[in-house]
């Protein structure tokens, strides 16, 4: 079975003033469908850069990315947007829900930017996604009326609403209390049963230990890749 994502020789360099920073210095990795992976590393290790590139928010300076059999390392911005709305979901540390929109509208947001977007179908999909995360009782609330744990569940619903192949969760528990941390991590872990690859990006070893595979990064390179 071929990997969902296969990356080879991935490099990313930034020019900051006179200095060139190598955020990624040659990374080779494979991600399988339905994997629960944690990318662990201190800040500056390149884990966020890797997530942004794999999440189609950024492009590599060098190297190859094969996503679902397609070479995607150097594609046009509009095609990257298409991948973001159709194949990828994001969960952020600070939730990033839009304050003016209701819970239901926030979750339906990714559907808005798809071709043939239809308001009724979008709402139906958002309702199902909110049921999946146990938030269907708060459809008409605004984000500021919810607790942190609830907001993150809504954010997860937004990430899964479009049935993506892969979800990137960037320090998803960084703003949560202990009780909610386990709940959110369990929820994310349960998504692999639906064939979704879940990638946790964290600097917290305890969080990373929840995943089935931990990739440790340092100075733009993969230091350790172990499966439990």
């Amino acid at each position: 079975m071929s990997a969902l994502i296969a990356i080879r020789g991935l490099r990313k360099a930034y020019v900051m003033g006179d200095e060139t920073v190598h955020a990624l210095a040659g990374v080779d990795l494979d991600f399988q469908q339905g994997e629960f992976v944690a990318i662990l590393g201190p800040s500056g290790s390149g884990k966020s850069t890797l997530m942004h590139i794999l999440g189609f928010m950024d492009t590599p300076t060098e190297g190859s990315i094969v996503f679902d059999g397609q070479e995607v390392a150097k594609i046009e911005p509009d095609l990257r947007a298409w991948y973001r709305s159709n194949r990828v979901g994001f969960v952020f540390q600070s939730f990033n829900l839009l304050p003016r929109l209701t819970v239901l509208e926030n979750v339906a947001l990714p559907m808005l930017y798809r071709e043939n977007s239809d308001p009724v179908a979008n709402e139906a999909a958002a309702t199902i996604a909110l049921e999946r995360v146990g938030m269907s009782h708060r459809l008409d609330h605004r984000p500021n009326q919810l607790s942190g744990g609830e907001r993150q569940r809504v954010a997860i619903a937004r990430a899964i609403v479009g049935s993506p192949s892969i979800i990137f969760a960037d320090e998803p528990t960084g703003n949560l209390d202990v009780k909610n941390i386990d709940r959110i991590l369990d929820l994310l872990g349960s998504l692999i049963k639906e064939g979704i690859t879940v990638v946790l990006v964290t600097h917290d070893l305890a969080v990373a230990e929840k995943a089935h595979r931990v990739i440790s990064m340092r100075a733009g390179l993969v230091q350790e890749d172990r499966t439990r």
């Binding site: 911005p77 947007a81 973001r84 798809r114």
Partner: peptide, 16 residues
């Protein structure tokens, strides 16, 4: 600005 970032992250194109 954050809203714009979120919208782009979930799939909005520049033209959207």
């Amino acid at each position: 600005i954050r809203e714009i970032g979120v919208r782009k992250a979930v799939g909005a194109r520049g033209s959207d």
